[in-house]
Design a protein around this nucleic acid. Structure first.
Lengths: 214, 214
DNA sequence: GTCTATAATTAGATAGAC
DNA sequence: GTCTATCTAATTATAGAC
């Protein structure tokens, strides 16, 4: 029905196929790890055959990288978009709202933390690539903000490396361990009001400067 | 050289073999997950052959359970021993020292959190068993203490399910992501003084009740 | 209690038709 | 761009010698 541009190099179906493969790959890799994920299952979820993965992405390794690129791009977009909406807002309020945004993202995309946790188990080229390509920019931006808040007396005087892992761990663990949380407490972690409540809790604990009087 | 009791049912070598297998199994399962861990590698690390695992533990599944029993037994021992040394101490101080103990244990045995994280990715009988057998007693004891502290005004009024995941996430993540932490910050998470500093930080943030005056 | 040898399954990657 | 068929290697579990 619709005339297609003759200049395009790939068939119109290819884009959506790639997208489906990437979505399936992210899911499988985050759930089962790089070695544990079977390319056949990724293909099956994407409703294509297994050799097609090799056609679109040269190898399992490159497919993994493309899938990881995807989540981090989504995170960056979410954080930058939020920040753009906060021009002129003071730094403490901005930081609190960014923590909210980060926790919302962690709930919507627990794959992010799962992938990092998976790869942090064994030293290797995948961890090298992951940290240097994606995590370091995130860490640097976060800890720079945290340091300014500590210097301004808005955060407890704790080294920023510790604050970083307290923030990310406290923020994400409930969603990464969602099936456990549901069983133990009856709380549904992905309920929007629960996500909100969790973010409020983390912000409340983080942004309360302790008495210097012990 | 040494005369052995004739009444024992297993050879003297068997006990130490079982221990070596269990140690190797815990390491492999925590690093690679149940499916990812190869029984051949577990056997190799324990310096035995692969069919011997089947002899001592009927299947890979039962080996996994035995290995998991081991870490949780170690955690229980550590916490109970610490608690026994604190008879007569007030509840707030006790709680703070138990948080320290938990964080020290998490640093010494990151396998605990790795195993839980692994299994929480897919619903299944292993997760059922893990939660009901080992995690629930831990969760119940912890949240009962947290609730008493909230009621006494010693902790911010946050639902205990949230406090539980904030505490465990904030306490353990730095050690679970140790290779990343090292690269990003230069901080060595397993340095005893760093562990101590991290525990102090978590306690400081957790036990500071926010101003009700916003 | 520990081994060697092997059976049955499944993995990622490739060849080549369409 | 997508498929079927297949190769090679690695997996858990088992049989049976010692």
């Amino acid at each position: 029905m619709i005339a297609e541009a003759t200049s395009r190099k790939t068939r119109p179906s290819a884009d959506s196929t790639r997208e489906r493969i990437l979505a399936a790959a992210l899911e499988c890799f985050s759930l089962q790890g790089f070695d544990g994920a079977a390319t056949r299952e990724i293909a099956s979820r994407a409703e294509v055959t297994q050799p097609l993965l090799t056609y679109h992405f040269r190898s399992k390794e490159e497919l993994w990288r493309a899938a990881v690129d995807g989540v981090f791009a989504a995170l960056t977009t979410a954080m930058v978009t939020r920040l753009d909406g906060l021009r002129g807002v003071d730094e403490v309020t901005t930081a609190k709202l960014l923590v909210h945004e980060f926790i919302s993202f962690s709930a919507a995309h627990p794959e992010l933390h799962r992938i990092i946790t998976q790869e942090c188990k064994v030293e290797g080229p995948r961890l090298d690539w992951l940290v240097e390509t994606h995590v370091r920019p995130l860490y640097d931006a976060t800890t720079e903000l945290l340091q300014r808040l500590v210097d301004a007396g808005q955060l407890a005087p704790i080294p920023v490396a510790h604050l970083y892992y307290i923030l990310t761990g406290a923020g994400a663990t409930m969603f990464v361990l969602a099936p456990e949380c549901r069983r133990l407490s009856g709380v549904e972690p992905f309920d929007p009001s629960v996500i909100e409540q969790h973010a409020d809790a983390v912000v409340a604990l983080l942004f309360t400067v302790p008495d210097t009087q012990g």
